Simulated assay, not measured.
Amino acid sequence: MSEQYPPASSHPGGAPQYSGAPYNGAPNGPVPGKVLGIVGFVLAFIAAPIGVVLSIVAMIQSRKAGAKNGFALAGIIIGIIGTVIIVASIIAAVALAGAGIDAFNEVCAELGSGTHTEGNVTYTCP
């Protein structure tokens, strides 16, 4: 089985030049989307939603060229997990803040308006 490479053209320095033929899985050739996949993978740890988007774009570029892109796949998986964790954390923080506000309002309803000290806690109620 012989591999097919784009035809080489002569170059003044003697090094072969290849035409802009599409990626055909040739070894040592650039993999479309690979650099973007690495960037998406790194961003999946730092800014998960952005990492997911870049990794998906890289995966699409690689698949169109018929190449595999492990960094893009890992970036998608890690980015999705990170995004789910971020969203769950935001929901939990909002729920806890709401519970804290409710507890504060209950204390102020019992104490009335003004500044009150109970133990080591000072409440300033409207």
Rank of each mutant, 00 (worst) to 15 (best):
Q4M: 05
Q4I: 04
Q4D: 09
Y5K: 05
P7S: 06
A8W: 03
A8P: 00
S9H: 13
S10T: 05
S10H: 13
H11S: 15
H11D: 15
H11P: 02
P12G: 01
G14E: 06
A15F: 09
P16T: 00
P16W: 07
Q17R: 13
Y18G: 01
S19V: 03
A21G: 00
P22K: 06
P22R: 09
Y23K: 00
Y23H: 11
Y23T: 00
N24V: 04
N24C: 06
G25Y: 02
P27V: 03
G29E: 13
P30S: 08
P30A: 11
V31C: 03
V31Q: 09
V31D: 06
V31E: 12
G33C: 05
K34L: 14
K34N: 12
V35A: 12
L36D: 11
G37R: 06
V39F: 14
V42C: 02
V42S: 03
L43F: 15
A44L: 06
A44N: 08
I46L: 07
A47W: 15
A47Y: 15
A48F: 05
A48N: 05
A48P: 09
I50S: 03
V53M: 13
V53K: 04
V53D: 03
L54F: 14
S55V: 04
I56M: 14
A58Y: 13
A58I: 10
I60A: 02
S62L: 00
A65P: 04
G66L: 03
G66F: 07
K68M: 04
K68E: 09
G70V: 02
F71S: 10
F71D: 11
F71K: 03
A72M: 07
A74M: 14
A74T: 09
A74G: 08
I76F: 13
I77M: 09
I77N: 05
I77E: 00
I77D: 00
I78W: 08
G79S: 07
I80E: 11
G82W: 11
G82P: 05
G82Q: 12
T83R: 12
T83H: 11
V84P: 04
I85A: 12
I86V: 09
V87A: 15
A88I: 05
I90N: 08
I91T: 08
A92D: 15
A93E: 10
A93T: 05
V94S: 06
A95I: 06
A95G: 01
L96P: 00
L96A: 09
A97P: 02
G100W: 11
I101M: 10
D102K: 15
A103N: 13
N105P: 00
E106D: 10
E106I: 01
V107R: 15
V107F: 08
C108V: 02
L111P: 00
G112P: 00
S113Q: 13
S113I: 04
G114T: 05
H116R: 10
T117H: 12
V121P: 01
V121F: 11
Y123N: 05
Y123C: 04
Y123D: 03
T124K: 11
T124F: 02
C125V: 08
C125Y: 13
C125R: 07
C125W: 13
